[in-house]
Design a binder for these strands. Structure first.
Lengths: 356, 356
DNA sequence: CCCTCCTGCTCAACCGATGTAGCAAGAGGT
DNA sequence: ACCTCTTGCTACATCGGTTGAGCAGGAGGG
């Protein structure tokens, strides 16, 4: 019945279905389906028939068609996530952990990266909805509320991660608190090398996104505590490209006629540029500035002196996220997860202990 | 099966279907379907009806049910990829590029990471097949042929990336050539600091995987060219964990009673351990050894003196991969893509030019 | 012996989209 | 006036599972 093809039927063996199995076993498709999806006890199929069906399915290498199954059940057991980039450890660990936790709940995670492109975010969200995801997580989305609106229209639950929205529950880091603690630390560390009242620059990120603006707030608060005034020219939220960070610092140094003794860096990607500049510009000689980085990278930890990194607590964030997913209560609140300072590399491992 | 809740049916508005639209427009579901999937000209639907249908669909926020569509068409326009980890730039860029290229072909990419766990690889492959992927890419799989076999049984095309298999077409880096060139370079760079005939250690990876063994072969070939004998104790393929690399180097140094003047490092993850050891063990003082790393990380590039990194040519690999996907000819050959040395950080950018 | 209950299974109607077949109305040709 | 062709649409079966309803046969009770 497939098609009236004059094809010499080369390979294209049709996939085994429950109907094929039913014929093989001599039972009804219903029985096969019930056995294979585990509802057979409830449906009063005998253990012996169940055994025969299971065995035959295995022999035939039967694979359930989840498209058909999902269509009938009107849910897919698919959970979607959109993510901006795969070029840093933060999003990498979010995705790894998300997948593991989704699988533990018998959900199939589908993740797609949007290259920080707002149009692609929307397109990806729509595609995921078309694929009938039961739930969609927007991670670091530029316009989370837009995604929430699209999901709402389709009756799909949505949550925000990393960047908050106002219309869906959001789990984010305590950006203010993390930036405050980080700024305090590098202000203290660099105190003896700075003039009295001299502020440090903030570099990277987009002032328009919530996280960056909260971090700037924490950055300012720490300065204020220390009695330091921060003027606008110290805030260089020039985006996520490393070379923009370099240019901005170069310009700043030229204008001020002096080099910063400490720098607040707002992402590991910006950090690439910053560290390149401090190392290879020749400006600093052997006295590298203190660097505080909001986000963590293990190679930076190993290779940089005078660096402090704030690590976002990905496990805790995802625990919180899945608590919201498990409880299907869509109260659109904001969960802020505390950050912590990244530990010394290899602290407490056999490797360090052994290196006497 | 969630729970027997006395829920007051709060929101859960059913999703709009072509039947709903058909009623609204006063046309048949067939017409709606034809208009929305673009076959309406062929089906001789009038432009005016098409216009009305399109408008109504938009107003109602209609989203196609790809589960139903895929079921009927017997293909999903889904393309699957399994990937070991998200903790390095190599796999990150593979995934980013794969997604972009898949989307350019109107395929929806679904990617899942398997944490280098062979059982999870198999499970993930099966799940993807159940979701009816049209094609499955096994990236860095520990047992690619097993996955190919599973795909074959289900009539799904499969390809290997990064690690080759014998039963499906494979696209990988020229590991031998890359390792040969890299080893030559660090042997040359460290020549004046090594005793005559002194080999350097190879650290990281698994000797059982094809890539590592090819790299070892290239590593040995470069030594042989230089008239240096490499005994087994210099090959430290201790896996991908950074702390294992540290331990192995520590043991090696103790046994030989001297420090290596150059090191071949087989992944950026092992590099974390290696650089930690060279920096903080105190062994090296200010004379860091020459490091050659098979794989690239931008922070390592910026922060390490005397490092040479081999970068795998991800764009070229994915071009080759998609050529195989586009041509549906499954000849199980091996494409080896040349690698190159990573360029100087920010070379040729405004950033460098500006930093006078 | 009749009635009820339980066991073990099957039937048929879906889920939403799509491809094939076909029908009614009007245009155009002879 | 009759036939053919085109236009613009609809009806229906189908993809592969799932699910509520229901049926046959045997056990058990009165």
């Amino acid at each position: 019945m497939t098609t009236p093809r004059p094809k010499p039927a080369p390979t294209r063996a049709r996939r085994t279905t429950i109907y094929d199995l039913a014929v093989l076993v001599g039972a009804s498709p219903t029985a096969v389906s019930a056995v294979l999806n585990g509802t057979w006890k409830k449906r009063r199929i005998s253990a012996s028939l169940a055994e025969r069906i299971t065995r035959t399915a295995e022999e035939q290498g039967y694979a359930l068609n989840l498209q058909a199954s999902g269509l009938r059940r009107e849910k897919s057991r698919l959970i979607g996530m959109i993510v901006p980039k795969y070029d840093n450890r933060y999003f990498g660990s979010i995705v790894e952990r998300f997948e593991a936790m989704a699988r533990a709940r018998e959900l199939f995670p589908i993740i797609t990266c949007t290259m920080r492109d707002p149009a692609l975010e929307i397109q990806a969200a729509r595609e995921m909805i078309s694929h009938q995801v039961d739930c969609l997580i927007a991670t670091g989305a530029t316009d989370p509320d837009r995604i929430t609106a699209i999901c709402e229209a389709a009756g799909v639950r949505s949550l925000n991660l990393d960047l908050p929205g106002s219309r869906a529950p959001s789990v984010i880091s305590d950006n203010f608190g993390g930036a405050l603690a980080l700024t305090r630390r590098i202000l203290a560390a660099s105190a003896s090398q700075r003039h009295r009242g001299e502020p440090i620059p903030f570099i990277g990120g987009r002032a328009s996104d919530h996280n960056t603006s909260e971090r700037i707030r924490g950055f300012r608060a720490a300065h204020e505590e220390a009695g330091i005034i921060v003027d606008e020219t110290m805030i260089l939220a020039t985006g996520y490209a490393p070379d923009r960070a370099i240019t901005a610092l170069e310009v700043l140094a030229k204008r001020r006629g002096q080099l910063p003794r400490a720098i607040f860096v707002n992402s590991t990607i910006a950090l690439e540029g910053v560290l390149h500049w401090t190392r290879s510009s020749g400006h600093f000689g052997s006295v590298a500035p203190h660097v505080g980085c909001f986000d963590w990278d293990p190679l930076a930890a190993v290779l940089t002196e005078n660096i402090v990194m704030v690590q976002q607590d990905v496990p805790a964030m995802l625990e919180a996220l899945f608590r919201l997913i498990d409880a299907d209560d869509p109260a659109p609140g904001l969960s802020e997860i505390p950050t912590h300072f990244a530990p010394q590399p290899f602290a407490g491992t056999a490797a360090t202990a052994g290196a006497d």
